Simulated scan of single mutants.
Amino acid sequence: MSNRTETHPARWRLWSMALSLAALLPTAASSADHAGQLYLDYAEVPLITRHAGAHQWMVVQSYMRVHVDIAQLKAANPGMRVFMYFETAGAYDLPPSEEPWPSGVSYRWVKANRPEWIVKDRAGRPITFWGGELYLYDVGNKAYQDEWARRAIDYAKTGGFDGVFADDVNMGESFRSTGWSGTSPKYPTDLSWTQATESFLNNVAPKLRAAGIALLPNVASAWNSDRATQVRWAKIAGAYAREHYQSWPNGDAPGEYDPNKGLLGGADWAWMSALHRDIVAARVPFYAFPHAGGWQAIDKMRYTRASYLLWYDPALAGGYAYATGGGPHTGQDPYNAAWNFDLGAPTGPAVQRSSGVWARSFARGTVVVDSNTKTATVTP
């Protein structure tokens, strides 16, 4: 998923993701109306129906329709929307029997039928990314864009999904120089890839919208990225998703796993908050999901959820999920009162109490976030 500056297993990377458009907006103004979940691993299939009534939206893999009756799931909770995960920038080299996996377009099909869609390095070798297992596709190629949109619409409609979660909608500076196995003559600069990605959105978003399918791009950007571009992308798509919201998934040292570490604070927290506010100010729903943080990471759950609520606009909705799939706690139920609380509707905007400390009041309580100490309190 997005914003990778640290090393992650490639398959974990592919399973990261969250969602939506106007179809996702709830009718009530509760602070829990945006709560949802991402179930993107085989081990999580049993969890999909466990808390359906508590979730307003879900993101699942397209193949999960084989294991879960999507129509029955939605019928049990009529207000819920279910979204399908679809990779945009590449694919694993998988046999045909595994084509339902997350890649929007099968690598072996592309290799056999449209090899020009595979991005090559200066020596003519296919470029790989995120650990070397995914092959890079030419997101700026209109024919590829058209085929991706066609398959996304077809898979979503036949599978009973309300929308598509598009992963790896990445800005060049967060993706090209950190994850690619080689240099592409066609995309030699960060800006060239950013422009190609924007052309993808400009072509694909109207097609999905016309088909009645919501689009949510999971956008990766570096800390020095210009926020104006991200706001523009959010407007094009009608929604914006941010993986690793106010946090990283692991501890601070290689090989360390402490679920309460990796929280963003200080200037990093302020940057993420400013991005959140910019997109909300543009009247676009903002979706946030800290990823692979550990099913008992209580402090992380509370800190990231409280941070999200500071800028949450009930008129726009948006979404928050605490996802654990892909990491050491895959298959563990992430449902927890530390993030599944409901304080009712906000009674006013967030207020800065001091440098790095913000608070917001709701009908049934208050959240206070101290980005200096990376802590949060929720007072009913």
Score class of each variant (00 low, 15 high):
Trp12Met: 14
Trp130Leu: 14
Ile118Phe: 08
Ser20Trp: 10
Ala149Leu: 12
Thr366Ile: 10
Ala282Asp: 01
Met1Tyr: 04
Trp15Glu: 07
Asp299Leu: 06
Val219Cys: 07
Arg13Val: 13
Arg364Thr: 07
Arg232Cys: 05
Pro115Gly: 10
Arg81Gly: 04
Ser221Tyr: 12
Gly327Arg: 01
Ile298Gln: 13
Leu275Ser: 05
Thr366His: 10
Asp333Ser: 01
Trp57Phe: 11
Pro126Leu: 06
Asp69Thr: 01
Arg232His: 13
Asp370Trp: 09
Ala205Gly: 06
Tyr39Leu: 03
Phe83Trp: 12
Trp12Tyr: 14
Trp15Lys: 05
Leu38Ser: 05
Ala317Met: 04
Tyr240Pro: 12
Thr178Asn: 04
Trp101His: 12
Val219Pro: 04
Asn224Met: 10
Ala32Arg: 13
Trp295His: 13
Trp311Ser: 06
Ala91Ser: 15
Asn202Lys: 15
Phe200Ser: 11
His67Cys: 06
Pro115Val: 07
Pro290Asp: 14
Arg364Asp: 08
Asn250Lys: 11
Ser20Asp: 02
Gly124Lys: 13
Ala210Ile: 10
His8Leu: 10
Thr229Met: 05
Trp311Phe: 04
Ser2Phe: 08
Arg305Ser: 00
Leu263Arg: 15
Trp358Ser: 06
Ala29Pro: 00
Leu275Met: 10
Leu21Tyr: 08
Ala22Arg: 11
Val82Pro: 13
Val68Thr: 14
Phe86Ala: 07
Ala338Gly: 00
Leu25Asp: 02
Ala267Cys: 02
Val164Arg: 03
Leu343Gln: 00
Gly262Lys: 08
Ser174Ala: 15
Ile236Arg: 05
Ala10Asn: 10
Gly348Asn: 02
Asn260Tyr: 06
Gly266Trp: 03
Glu44Thr: 00
Thr324Ser: 06
Tyr335Asp: 14
Ala205Thr: 09
Tyr187Ala: 11
Asn77Ile: 07
Asn224Thr: 13
Tyr137Pro: 02
Ala376Asn: 13
Pro217Met: 13
Arg122Met: 13
Arg305Tyr: 00
Thr5Gln: 09
Ala376Val: 10
Trp109Leu: 13
Met301Val: 09
Thr5Cys: 05
Leu343Pro: 00
Gln37Asn: 08
Arg81Ile: 07
Pro254Cys: 11
Pro46Cys: 00
Thr197Tyr: 04
Gly326Asp: 00
Pro102Trp: 15
Tyr92Asn: 08
Ala222Asn: 06
Tyr63Gln: 13
Pro102Asp: 11
Arg13Ile: 14
Asp146Phe: 11
Gly53Leu: 09
Arg114Met: 10
